[in-house]
Design a protein around this nucleic acid. Structure first.
Lengths: 155, 155
DNA sequence: GCGAACTTTCACGTATACGGGAAGGTTGCG
DNA sequence: CGCAACCTTCCCGTATACGTGAAAGTTCGC
């Protein structure tokens, strides 16, 4: 297999805040604010204390943005959902720190539980939206029925 | 058919702001604010200028609350979705103002179109949430697979 | 090794979505 | 009528989620 023109297996492509923010469709200010709220950990800092973001940080930022924009969660709710994610990353580290299969199994099991909760939270939201959609659909159907009625009579 | 103990066909049960707000789970302050934003029309006023809400107002308030709480729309977005509802009420009046079947058919058709748009907006939101759920489900599945792997080995 | 571009940390400003109180009028039961 | 409970319109306060400089340090290509 041929390696691309970039260095093979780049150790870690790190972005500074502006590039990182642009990449995920946020402003540097928002990213700093999220960090201030504890939604994000410092990632890494350069010699001169510049924030440096790796791919996992970008994923996290995209997740935050999706929860905020698409799901309409407040940042407080996002924080709740992310506590789970934080535990995940700690768990990830803990996972690689051990080789004990029992311990690893336990960590993975915890992760599965957290993901389950995330799914439930989102599903609840979807359920409420579904109700609203069904409602609108019902009204639309009744309206169409009335149109058909008129068409029937004036035929 | 026997009529209930209330006056038969009450002309219009009108509630004052506190009762109306409580009925739909809002505060009087919020209700006034929504009116200020134009999400709600004055409904009716008493002799002494008290706001009076009828059933259709309550429905509208419940709709606003659902869009805000359940769907997570901003009040600006709610306003957008309600422009349609406003047109609906004007259309409702226009409907009863005419007996021309052609005109009535047109009004009903407009209403169906507005409901269609509402459904589409909500469906888009559901779609984005679905993506997030699927994402979480996928990660969960992979996590469970890794657990199974461990169980396989340590069996 | 210099300058333009970027970054840092305050710190204050702003839009949204209300909360809460003042000052005063309205309702309606007794 | 009287008065408690409600309502009205200001108007200022607050939490959230950032925007927008200011002042100072950092990077980096030429």
């Amino acid at each position: 297999m041929v390696v691309t023109n970039e260095q093979a297996s780049t150790p870690a492509r790190l972005l500074r805040i502006q590039e990182a923010a642009a990449e995920v469709g946020l402003t540097p200010r928002s990213v700093r604010y999220y960090e201030e709220l504890g939604l994000l950990r410092p990632a890494a800092r350069s010699e001169g204390d510049y924030r440096l973001f790796d791919v996992s940080d970008l994923e996290r930022l995209r997740f935050i943005k999706a929860l905020r924009d698409d799901a309409g969660f407040s940042l407080a709710e996002v924080a709740q959902l992310l506590e789970d994610e934080e535990a995940r990353e700690r768990g990830h580290a803990a996972f690689h720190a051990t080789t004990d299969p029992v311990e690893r199994r336990r960590l993975l099991s915890e992760r599965a539980t957290r993901l389950e909760r995330q799914v439930e939270t989102l599903e609840r939201k979807i359920g409420r939206l579904r109700t609203m959609v069904d409602d609108a659909r019902g009204r639309r159907a009744r309206t169409l029925a009335r149109i058909a009625e008129i068409d029937e009579v004036t035929r």
